[in-house]
Design a protein around this nucleic acid. Structure first.
Lengths: 138, 138
DNA sequence: GTAACTGCAAAATATTTGCATCCTT
DNA sequence: AAGGATGCAAATATTTTGCAGTTAC
């Protein structure tokens, strides 16, 4: 069963406002990473640019969404999985960006094998971005 | 022996200009990834912003440097290894960003183990960003 | 000499901040 | 009621484009 927007907001101790609900709905509706401008385009009629910026920042701070690296340098964002709460976070992200359709999706199943680092290096977080052809565009 | 700037430019069939040489020197001098503004700061007195943008773009296009993902979303750049030429490119990048000193370095030795992708996905390029403490800051 | 490169000005984009007003709790 | 959230205006920051003058080959 899919979590409802309002429930998510409550879980993260955020006030329920229409802009937050609407932006959250976007993330639920689209199962891949969204950039700021993707979001802006969808809600521009309803909300101010600044509100979108601030909403995303709040979501990031609270851990509702996480950053997704993009090869172009622009950040994208995606919903954290059910498992993530403010206290318990996943720090391994595997994302796949399709060269054809341009969509970036989270590969929840793929785990990152241990990388042997040079002596003295201590990993805290790992981000893996794979680019290529996705299963729909091959 | 270290490659000279002018030799690198020749190798990539680029005209030798002072701005290109100077920016290339920066990359040689500093063995970690530089952001646009890192570079701008160093050469602002000598060259126009636009020249820096265009020089980086040219270097990227020709394969002299490659993009380095950054957790903040901003792009960084680093020299490609000796092995890379316009024709023969490495498509696996492992980078380590230190939480303390903020420096991002290429881990040339580390290779990325094969990731098992869902059926239908074909990888072309892989970028791995590890964040944590580097060997100097532990 | 000629195509490529650079600098300057300006346009186009992107992001942030201050403040008054409105809304959720 | 009170603090948080929003919208608007405007300040900043970032990146791109056009064009005329300069330079490497």
């Amino acid at each position: 069963m899919q979590r409802q927007e309002s429930q998510i907001l409550k879980d993260f101790e955020l006030r329920t406002t229409t802009s937050r609900s609407d932006i959250l709905k976007l993330f639920i509706k689209r199962p891949f990473a969204l950039s700021y401008s993707d979001i802006e385009k969808e809600v521009a009629a309803a909300y101010d640019r600044v509100t979108v910026y601030r909403t995303l920042k709040t979501f990031l701070d609270k851990g509702v969404i996480h950053k997704v690296l993009d090869d172009e340098g622009g950040l994208k964002y995606a919903l954290c999985k059910e498992l993530c709460t403010s206290h318990d976070h996943h720090h391994e992200h595997v994302h796949f960006k399709c060269d054809s359709c341009g969509q970036t999706s989270c590969l929840d199943d793929a785990t990152i094998p241990a990388i042997s680092l040079p002596p003295g290096f201590k990993p805290r977080e790992v981000n893996l971005l794979i680019q290529g052809k996705c299963n729909k565009c091959k």
